[in-house]
């Protein structure tokens, strides 16, 4: 369904700025899509880990968890410390239905879970998880909200609307500080990056069995996370290249490609280089130049004052589906770290 809305003066006044801004927005949006996949996968991993430990502790006392934590923390970092494992156990115990888990994973970050663990009913989890996403509530604010029980009475919270800038909207939920802490050696990277998982044997059969199951869960998290993030990345490189190509056609005669790339980079605080942007454009154009039954030529002549520019482009269509693995750009971590 379409309906007309008021024209933004900004677009009318400065079309070139508008086109450049939305490319920056598209890049940010894709970065956060990738982070969201990682974040959701991580919450599911922690829930599964909690469930496995709960199943094992039904047979053993809690000392077994200490032994497990001592090995897991060395292996995967402090996400698997003893207190964290206790939170995972609570998380899996209190929030059991898988469908509810999925919606919660979408809306909150791991730091919210210890607060949500204080809620008994799954319906309360869903309610507060939605509030977290809608009003960008951090864990301490969430705790306060749960104490007050009625969000509508809190005017300062209601004043925070959903229309903030995309980056700000997601920042708290994604736990970005955690993600980028300590640069390349962050515990997140240690947990997320695809690499071989070594077997660790403690000599205690139940610990080893549970460890093996958790290893499989970590491996699944890494594989699925990397697969989906690669799929987004695969699409993203083409999407960004396509956006730049389209802007170049639309702005032909008034803004050069060099200016477009430089302006996008400036809008992203220089975190994304013009070379990287140009690379995405070239990748896109190379794929477009390949054999395709869906392409249709389109010649556009633009007159601006004394300047006449002819730009030949092709229709944007199904080529992404049939593109070779050329989009498998290896710098996904680089792309994420610029978020």
């Amino acid at each position: 369904m379409f309906f007309y809305i008021t024209m933004e003066n900004k677009i009318k006044d400065d079309y070139s700025s508008f086109r450049i801004d939305i490319i920056g927005e598209a890049i940010r949006s894709q970065q956060f899509d990738m982070l969201n996949v990682a974040k959701e996968g991580m919450l599911q991993l922690f829930w599964n880990t909690g469930k496995l430990i709960n199943e094992a502790t039904a047979l053993q006392d809690q000392n077994f968890v200490k032994e497990l934590a001592s090995v897991l923390e060395v292996k995967y970092g402090r996400y698997f410390s003893l207190p964290a494992l206790a939170q995972m156990q609570e998380f899996a115990r209190i929030c059991p239905p898988e469908e509810i888990l999925l919606s919660i994973c979408h809306n909150v970050g791991w730091k919210h879970i210890p607060v949500l663990n204080k809620l008994a009913k799954p319906s309360e989890w869903v309610y507060y998880a939605e509030l977290v996403f809608k009003y960008q509530i951090n864990p301490s604010e969430l705790e306060e909200e749960i104490k007050q029980k009625d969000l509508t009475k809190n005017s300062s919270m209601s004043a925070r609307r959903f229309d903030k800038a995309l980056m700000e909207r997601y920042r708290q939920v994604f736990d970005l500080d955690q993600f980028f802490k300590n640069d390349k050696h962050s515990i997140f990277r240690n947990l997320f990056e695809l690499k071989a998982i070594e077997d660790t044997l403690t000599g205690t059969e139940l610990v080893d069995q549970t460890m093996h199951m958790i290893d499989l869960e970590v491996d699944k998290f890494r594989k699925v996370g990397n697969t989906v993030i690669n799929a987004i990345g695969n699409y993203t490189w083409g999407h960004i290249g396509e956006n730049i190509a389209s802007a170049r056609v639309a702005l032909a005669g008034e803004t050069s490609l060099e200016t477009i790339l430089k302006s996008i980079s400036e809008r992203l605080n220089g975190n994304i280089s013009t070379q990287w942007l140009e690379q995405q454009l070239k990748i896109y154009e190379r794929v477009k130049a390949g054999p395709s039954t869906n392409s249709e030529n389109n010649t556009q002549v633009i007159k601006e004052g004394n300047v006449t520019t002819t730009v030949i482009s092709t229709a944007i269509g199904e080529d992404f589906n049939t593109a070779p693995n050329i989009y498998k750009n290896p710098d996904i971590m680089y792309f994420l770290e610029q978020a």
Partner: peptide, 30 residues
């Protein structure tokens, strides 16, 4: 194991055509 929605893509994003009254029009859709 996972689902992902991709950004909306519109095509053709830039199209030139002959309008019956206004002559050649370039339509950019973003």
């Amino acid at each position: 194991h996972g689902v992902q929605a991709y950004p909306l893509v519109i095509h053709p994003a830039n199209e030139t055509y002959l309008h019956p009254e206004y002559g050649r029009i370039v339509r950019n859709v973003t």
